[in-house]
Simulated scan of single mutants.
Amino acid sequence: MRDSLVGRYNIDALWLDATEPENDDLLDRKVCNGKYPGEMFRNAYPLIVNKAVYEGFRRDIDNKRAMLFTRSAFPGIQRYGVATWSGDVGNDWETLRRQIVAGLGISVCGLPWWTYDAGGFFRPSNQYTDKNYHERFLRWLQTSVYLPLMRVHGYMSNTEFWNYGEDVMRISRNALSLRYSLLPYIYSCAADVTFRGGTIMRPLVMDFATDTTALSLKYQYMFGRSLLVTPVLEPEINQMCVYLPETEGGWYDFRDNSYASNNGWYETGVSIENIPAFVRAGSIIPLSTELTTTSSLSGADFEIRIFNDADGEFCLYEDNGNNYDYESGLFSEIKMEWNNKKRVFTIFDKSGKFGNRREGRNIKVILISKNGISEREILYDGYKTVVKF
């Protein structure tokens, strides 16, 4: 495999399907040179399989970051560059609801990289013309914008957006564009996972442990520490009631930057164009502009959205994105801070060994408050920059 596939074709990731193993393949078999019954290793089998592939990848492929995608997982598997997904699921509303619960459960088990087949693996035979399915597909896809990995996959399906008509294609492309714009935020959250044991898909108990109402909710969750995701999980609605946990300064609607509420139950409008998501006051969200590939993420121009009414901080992380040089310190961090009382935003000196410190980057800084939006444009050259509003 090393010589005929991975090395020859410069493969970036490996999809290890059926690592359960499938069809009771360990039943009544001996493993480890006939020493142990196979059933003893059934649950841990995916861990051992992925460990072997990861270690072989790192040994034989020169300084290329391993990415393994596996249908089954076991605690500890995150050490081996592994992401998992929920398997071959249906496409109905109840199945979508169950995905959220499953993903949050996986996250609190210490496995941060999880996703699902957006649109369902098993789909209706008339999927390209079924308007009811189109609505479900879009809600699956829009929710996946706020998952650790975003992907579309389906059994015996041509899943390209254009197969579903102009409306689905337009809305799907908007969802994909939103995902790309969030990449600086997502990649920094990924660094938090690696270096500080963080979690990207976060059940509300992680951030609002004393809020009993928040703890009772199964389908709302945090994406990183700033974004509250409220998936649309039923058809043909134009309003939904969401819960905004108490937090200093309240919450802003991420869709249009309007101020939503301080805390409690909140009635919000719903359209087919997107799902509601909310931002905690004090959040600093870096967003890319016109990004269409992950390879151009590091060093690209971007905008920073500051959500007023509370102090905040954020650490933007960057590295090569495709190798293990970061293990030798070849990465950079740019710490940012918002002082709400003084209305001062500070970007500190760039730290680390990655990138050209003196290479200027155009940054649009946007302050979002209850009374409107203020903008500043700066050229950041890697040294401390202070922006006053």
Rank of each mutant, 00 (worst) to 15 (best):
K35Q: 14
R65I: 14
K388C: 15
R2D: 15
W140Q: 02
N126P: 03
V344C: 11
R139W: 07
A277L: 06
G382A: 07
M240C: 00
P203C: 04
T19E: 04
R42H: 11
L330A: 07
Y146E: 00
I106M: 07
R357F: 08
M206W: 12
K35P: 07
L367S: 03
I272V: 14
I373P: 04
S332Y: 00
S271Y: 03
G38Y: 06
D319N: 07
Q78M: 09
E135K: 08
D62P: 13
L14C: 08
K353L: 11
D381M: 15
Y36R: 02
S226K: 07
D24R: 11
D167R: 15
F137K: 03
N174Y: 06
I275Q: 09
G119K: 06
L330D: 15
P148S: 01
I378G: 06
S4C: 12
Y36K: 03
R179W: 10
S86K: 01
A191E: 00
L176H: 07
R59Q: 13
S283Q: 03
S144M: 03
L316K: 04
G355N: 03
F74I: 06
A214H: 06
T293K: 01
Y164M: 08
P276K: 00
G250L: 04
S374V: 14
N10P: 09
N274R: 13
R8L: 14
T294A: 11
F195D: 07
N371A: 12
L204M: 14
P37Q: 00
V387T: 05
R361P: 05
S328T: 12
K30R: 12
N43R: 15
L297A: 04
W93I: 01
P276M: 00
Y383H: 10
A190C: 09
T159I: 12
C241P: 06
L111I: 13
E337P: 05
N362E: 09
V82N: 09
G360R: 08
I48C: 11
G299S: 00
R173F: 12
S374T: 14
M40W: 14
T213F: 09
Y128W: 15
P203W: 02
A66W: 00
L217D: 07
Y324K: 00
W251L: 02
G269T: 09
K335Q: 11
L47F: 09
R225P: 07
Q142D: 06
I272Y: 03
G90I: 09
R97L: 03
S283K: 00
S351N: 13
E359I: 15
K341D: 10
I77N: 10
R79A: 12
V53A: 02
R225T: 15
W15I: 11
I306V: 12
M222E: 04
G56N: 13
P37D: 11
S125L: 14
L330N: 14
L26W: 01
T247I: 09
D207Y: 14
I237A: 07
K335W: 11
F195H: 10
P203Y: 04
M1G: 13
K35V: 12
A209K: 06
F195Y: 12
I378H: 01
E135A: 04
